[in-house]
Amino acid sequence: MSSLQALLVSTGAVTLAEIGDKTQLLALLLAARYRRPWPIAWGILVATLVNHALSAWLGAEIARWLSPALLRWLVAGSFLAVALWTLKPDALDEDRTALPARGAFIATTVAFFLAEIGDKTQVATVLMAARYEPLWQVIAGTTLGMLIANLPVVWLGHRFADRLPLRLARTLAALAFLLLALWVAWHGVG
């Protein structure tokens, strides 16, 4: 079980953090505009893999540069900040709704990659890569979490999103990040 810890923690944390996130709204917008779920699903996968691989690499590099004590408190504090950030509902920025008219796959790939820059799940990916090894499990887990949270929105559309208890989901995600912060503060990063 401990050999899959990075994969399981990364999947669970990102799945919870994505509920109600702007990327779910983006998935809904893309599904409504293009009505082609498979190219949208592939676009989400490609964009997330690239974005989260770069983020995980950055997290691993940060972990190498910092002393274990400093890294411990930075990661714990960052998880606490992400927990608080998770409580804030997201909304699509007006600028992000103007999608290129080149096709569902390209539009999804570009839009999801850009939407993830600086997003809480990208920050969480950096943090988990600084905390967990092997790195491929963090990348696979955060990508899987994005897919678990976003693909149902693509296929089930507006009806699914209207029935989702977003406040409860954000609260559970915040609690998960708070627990991660406490775990790292108590046990350290290594």
Rank of each mutant, 00 (worst) to 15 (best):
G188Y: 08
V9L: 13
G20L: 11
A6C: 08
R131D: 09
A161I: 12
G20S: 12
L58F: 14
T142D: 08
E133N: 07
V184G: 01
A60C: 08
A83D: 05
I62A: 15
V75W: 00
W186E: 13
L84Y: 09
E133S: 11
A53E: 06
A91P: 03
G59V: 03
L172N: 01
G141Q: 07
A6R: 03
V75D: 00
A104K: 04
F79M: 13
L180K: 01
A53D: 05
L4W: 15
R131K: 15
Q24C: 07
D162E: 14
I40A: 09
P100T: 12
G59M: 01
W42C: 14
A115F: 06
L175W: 08
R36H: 11
R35M: 12
T109N: 10
L30F: 03
A63I: 02
A161G: 10
A107M: 05
L164S: 05
L127N: 01
M146S: 14
W183H: 04
V154W: 03
G12K: 02
A111P: 08
H52K: 01
P152W: 07
F177Y: 10
G145V: 07
F105T: 05
A27R: 00
W183L: 09
S2D: 11
L180Y: 01
L8W: 09
R170M: 07
H158F: 13
L25E: 06
L80F: 15
A130G: 09
